[in-house]
Write a protein that binds this DNA or RNA. Sequence first.
RNA 1: GCCGUUGUAGCUCAGGGGUAGAGCACUUCCUUGGUAAGGAAGAGGUCGAGAGUUCAAUUCUCUUCAACGGCUCCA
Length: 647
Amino acid sequence: MIKITFPDGAVREYPYGSTALDVAKSISEGLARKVLAANINGQVWDATRPIPTDATLKLLTWDDTEGKSTFWHSSAHLMAEAIESMYPGVKFWVGPATENPPGFYYDMDLGGHQISDEDLRKLETKMAELAKQQSAYQRKDISKAEAVGYFTQKGDEYKLDLLGNLQDGEITFYTQGQFTDLCRGPHIPHTGFIKAVKLTNIAGAYWKGDEKNKQLTRIYGITFPAKKDLEEYEALQEEARKRDHRKLGKELGIFTFDDQVGPGLPLWMPNGGIVIEELEKLAKESEDKAGYKRVVTPHIAKESLYLTSGHLPYYQDSMYPPMELEGVKYYLKAMNCPHHHKIFDAEPKSYKDLPYRLAEYGTCYRYEQSGELFGLMRVRCLHMNDAHIYCTKEQFYEEFKAVNEMYLKYFKIFGVEKYVMRLSLHDPAKLGKKYVDEPELWKETEALVRDVLIRTNTPFKEVADEAAFYGPKIDVQIWSTIGREFTLATNQVDFAQGRRFKLTFTNKDNQAETPLIIHRAPLGTHERFIGFLLEHYAGKFPVWLAPLQVKILPISDKSMEYAQTLLDSLKNADIRAEVDDRSEKIGKKIRDTELAKVPYMLVIGEKEMQEGKVAVRRQGKGDLGVKSIDEFILDVRKEIKERTPNP
RNA sequence: GCCGUUGUAGCUCAGGGGUAGAGCACUUCCUUGGUAAGGAAGAGGUCGAGAGUUCAAUUCUCUUCAACGGCUCCA
């Protein structure tokens, strides 16, 4: 007998050789029908595989993340079976479940075959057929020699490559129906669980993610245990499309692109201009309070500046090519730091001047690869909420902490609840290549940053080989409401550029010392941040950010004059307002204003005119009742001043 | 940069080898209506750009530009 401990602490005994499915059946048949896999002593395990020892056991269903990923991984095998049956000779690489986007993919070498979107529909049908056969996913231990023999005979160099990294004794095959794959598992009991299939797209993917390698075909898909789940998923996708910042940005007159201006070069329209101004106002206020000094620097500089900074050798490919004037090369700036360093260096500094904080909403140009451009999220002209803090090692803790606090303050204002701070470290193997060759300084600086995160109880995760060339950084990841992940900003420590620019300050001992530099950009760039905000708010900006804050809707021409006096009052109170003076009925005016996502509507007719009041309507909330215009102005001004989030 | 898809009016989209269509938006007129679409008329397109095939190309072929879905990259 083996002892099974359940999540609630209960312990039961089962005969040796029992499976998770047997355990489920002993509880209820209904449960057994839902079990996809099991977590056994922390390891995900086939539901149909005997439990080897006493164990803690959690049955996994569709409601568990691990259940879903097992389901999707098995779906990838099902898709491979369908593909192999329709396109014999296709060679498969790997087919994992994915979290974002949810579902799975399988990479394959199609040989001479070509697969189109219509073929995906045929494949879906084939998968549905195969699923109906309820083929079991059968696990088999196999010797390395036997496995190598199998794939050699199949002529599959990809699986042979995978086998190369595996030891004899840890190799397993899984077979369902006619399809056998090298796989460590686990899998769901049989294909019959898969009730709804959607193959979402075909894409190219470099083998092993290396662009020097051959490009394989990747097919993405998603599957569900019930048809209605697929319908829900598709409805969600439709919602996400409506919230896409590219669609909203166009509808709301925030930004546009023009072929003749160029790819990745957004044109900010009047409404976008207002959002930008409001964000800059916010940045200026908080930076003023935090002791930053504002500067303005040119958009171009001589080549020698970027040779000194060290950027050029690392990033030349993603800078616009230089223009040559009077025999000298000039580059459009892709970053603001070198300009700021020169401002630091323009006047001698004493330790009494530190921390010295320079801020600029700097315009930068980066020649991003054409395939990388994506709405406002990846562009070639960007406006960075940039600042550089020059400080001593002793000041570092307080400075870095203050920067993190600024992030958190902004998150609160914008209602960002889910975020992760990622500590990006260097890879010692790449010193001198990807990273400045200063092993000791790397260790020291990384420890400094980690120390701040730990001492301030900031949750973070560490990732290797993601640092900037001049120092470790913190990447702040956030998610828009439609699940899109953003690297909002990077927050970096730089021990290299100070030396390269020979920046110094005179310390207490009258010695020249090099400052540490913190690069920070809590609001990232206007482009990415406004893109995020559009999706985050679904285009419904809070009042302080809304391009148009109040729309006055006269019921008829009779109240038009009153509307004009209201407009004057609102404008005098610095509230962005307009009058809808079209000869439309009030229902139409309300509808159009609702769709334009204007936060406040003032409906006025003869009644309001006589009483000297306004009938207030809130976007998405409906009629809020009648107020005096003074009272309304007071309320709205308060909302703007406090940057109140949407109700 | 690579693989794939798409490109018709301001927007959403239909069409298809023989001089281009709808709805919404826009303009004008009628209507002055109390909380999510009043009515009529009108204007609007080098069918992304260039070349080729053809008597004839928006439609077929090639090239190119751009956008989109991925891969690679991201100071």
